[in-house]
Amino acid sequence: MHEAAKKTFRYVASFLLIVTLNFALPRLMPGDPVKNLIGEDVYVSEAVMEELRTEMGLNRPLYEQFTAYIGDLLRFDLGYSYHLHSPVAEILRERIVWTLLFVGVSVLLGAALGTLFGAYAGWKPETKANRLACCGFIALSCTPPYFLALLFLEIFAFKLGLFPFKGFYDVPTPGSIAHHMFLPVTVMALFSASRNFLIMRGSVIQEKGQLYALYARAKGLYDISILFRHVIKNASLPIITLLALDFGFLFSGALFTEIVFSLNGMGTLIYDAIIGKDYPVLQGSFLVVALAVLLANMLADLAYAIADPRVRRPA
């Protein structure tokens, strides 16, 4: 229980840190905080600026501003984008669904494929096919996802014309969505799979030399069933950690891929916000992405505790 308390404390502390940073950043940036909070490229007159300054409470003491900010957060009020003329929370809600769908499907696919192929490659590392697969996945894992995305776009969308090259759908039917998402999901899943493949392969090579694997053989298990019944569960423990650590990395990869495929998700949102210096959107996106990574780590911790009995030894 002690360990759990420590962990909870750590998560709460990181959460508070993220929220505080999000508050402090626009106020610490050089220049006028009003500009920083509404975005530099927005054109407003001096008078409106003053009005906004009072409205946002920027002339009040910092702690008052902070409590107001926390209050806003609790009401899911993340500010207003003067570029897009709508509340940031609403924009984010609309965009993040697509990004989560995109990232979620790719990560799950990538984890499943990478783990299975990696496990098999680690079980029989000396066969030609597995060596080839290993080389292929190493190459993939070294390729930045946006480059792979460009390559796929060039070949399958422009040259072969098999897939559309922008957007999530023409009409919002599952068929159209799947058609549009196919290439980006393939790119991200391959990228995610390559990392899982390499970890899993090494992990299985290590685990199959353990005594319990030999004992499984001594019990009468035959070849591949030793892998599936004994080795795979032990070997996939590092994958859980990797998934959490990698989530941020994959997320950023996904954002680039989104931009390449002009998908209307978080990636393009952030990209446009950077180009247009739309700080409220950037701030809100930063908060959401940071919280998503935090949540992923929390889930991984929980999953680890369920999968590994050594972590939850009774007192």
Binding site: Y215, A218, K233, N234
Partner: peptide, 14 residues
């Protein structure tokens, strides 16, 4: 067979 090192012969996650 009863292995020499029982704690390592049992699988930690089952």
């Amino acid at each position: 067979i009863i292995f020499q090192n029982p704690s390592l012969a049992l699988n930690p996650v089952y």
